[in-house]
Write a protein that binds this DNA or RNA. Sequence first.
DNA 1: CTGAAAGCGCTTACAG
DNA 2: CTGAAAGCGCTTACAG
Lengths: 334, 334
Amino acid sequence: MGRRRTVTSVQIAREAGVAQSTVSRVLNGGSVSEETRRRVLDVVAKYDFQPSQAARSLVGTRSGLIGVVIRDLTNPFYPVMVKAVERVLHQQGLRLSLVTDVMTPEEGLALLRREGVDGVVFTSAVQDDPLAHRMLKHDIPVVLCHRTLEDFPADQVEADNATAGRLAADHLLSLGHRHVGMVCGSAGASTAQQRGAAFRDRLRAHGDVTLTEVDGDYDYATAYGAVRTLLSGDRRPTALFCHNDIMAYAALNAAAAAGVRVPDELSVVGCDDVPLSAWERIDLTTVRQPLERIAQVGVELLVQRLDEPDLPPRREVLPVEFVERSTTAPASRI
Amino acid sequence: MGRRRTVTSVQIAREAGVAQSTVSRVLNGGSVSEETRRRVLDVVAKYDFQPSQAARSLVGTRSGLIGVVIRDLTNPFYPVMVKAVERVLHQQGLRLSLVTDVMTPEEGLALLRREGVDGVVFTSAVQDDPLAHRMLKHDIPVVLCHRTLEDFPADQVEADNATAGRLAADHLLSLGHRHVGMVCGSAGASTAQQRGAAFRDRLRAHGDVTLTEVDGDYDYATAYGAVRTLLSGDRRPTALFCHNDIMAYAALNAAAAAGVRVPDELSVVGCDDVPLSAWERIDLTTVRQPLERIAQVGVELLVQRLDEPDLPPRREVLPVEFVERSTTAPASRI
DNA sequence: CTGAAAGCGCTTACAG
DNA sequence: CTGAAAGCGCTTACAG
């Protein structure tokens, strides 16, 4: 109880025999004589003085805090994303304020505003995203990473999801699959829309292919259930395109539970290429998304915007890459 | 550029026709007449006013921020831990400030001090942990979750790791394994020490068993390499106890890469029981650690200590549970 | 119950 | 180059 005794710049100043404003100038790179600087820094070092971030952001124009909005941290996709974002932020001297699904969007918005974040990185925006629109309304810079929104006046970075869907379709078609299933991501997610549309178009253009779509909501349990149902039906597909890796893992596991052999009886293609996918026990054929790059470009766009708020909104689309592993095989094997 | 125009309590006060201190009282539950309260809350609602956290923590005695120190977020163990901690903190109205391996311990310490965290949750302390000791020296309350330290005057919560090691040993012994390998966690980690010692003791007590130990450093890549080497040697063990699940996955994958069949040629036991372990493609025999409980008890201990800093340090040990799945089998099968 | 005032620890013009 | 002073947006005694 009572406040912890912390050294302040006033005490540093007193001990160094200078004004408090001089300490501030030394720490923030103002013009100070070499001797004064040395004297102050000695005292700073002696106490390992750290200026209060609260005081700084109260008086300054920046808090140095960036909100990072994700969904479920236990979905293997997000740790990779958060880590990449965190790394870039840290290089820029910025701190991260995490908003996840342990709170409601309203609570998240309130927290981010109270904390006075300089900007927000969204990684899982959905159409009509309540949080994203309201941040913008509050005049807080926003960048959409990974998932994007139509007619949303903010910077956006995404993978070339249309190509991802097309590559997946071409691969399965070339293996001779003619009865195909698609495990879709959340309806409001741009990634699901783009990947799904491109995949669908490609099959349609090819002709002579049956496509069955089920909803996996980008969620392991949902996808697991959907695939089990799909596999127990009488018109079982010979191949599955899943809109992300986590749902592909669900498909792999559901197939195992149903006694359906992969890839002999069922081919599975994912999307993202999370590190797990390269494990021998998984070894998932998938489309790699440049996650590190997306995070890096996203944070860079945001940081630029902090300096120039009136820049027109920019959109970056980053290339994907097909990664063939062992969960796909020719349809003829059956 | 220029500060964003944010509504402040002064403006709320002006519009409600009261003093600024009255707004503060309404928001913090001071004594205010029903009518005044209503008038203020109307204006607060109109602007969706959020009091500045920076100002609050500058003047108040608490920042409401709790540091959470982990290592690598992409190790599947930590997202589960962080999520559990975050959930409990959020229930308590506290915010989390994440420190990971994207920064050095020194940088982490500096950040946590600048931010004025009320306390810190450590999830991966090691003996002589530089950060943990220095936090305490700076008089900041600390709780050690999951991993603990000898002679460290702070609250600590951990699983019953000795029992975990014993259960793993008993299981493998009862299956008839007499040439056993152990993939150890980081030398400085209490979990590795306790699990390792109990496992070792049990084998020694049984007698007639060869134990080969390798270092996996609680790291996927390190464990993978160590197991590959172990499996290519001439005295290949028939069973492996890995000090955590992530290293067990590495063992499973290394075995697959080496063409060693699990469980027929090699039994593998992990420790932790992360959600991944239940996947059909993994289906790992392991010892479950009550992660949610550890997080919850840890945060509770910390929150109590914020109110009563002079409480003697407490230590909680939570029970583990053996989970038999399909990565273990009798040694006689070979 | 309510208001005026002090003060938290800084940054940033403003003088000198 | 350096110091004195204002002020960021709150909470918390202190009067009334």
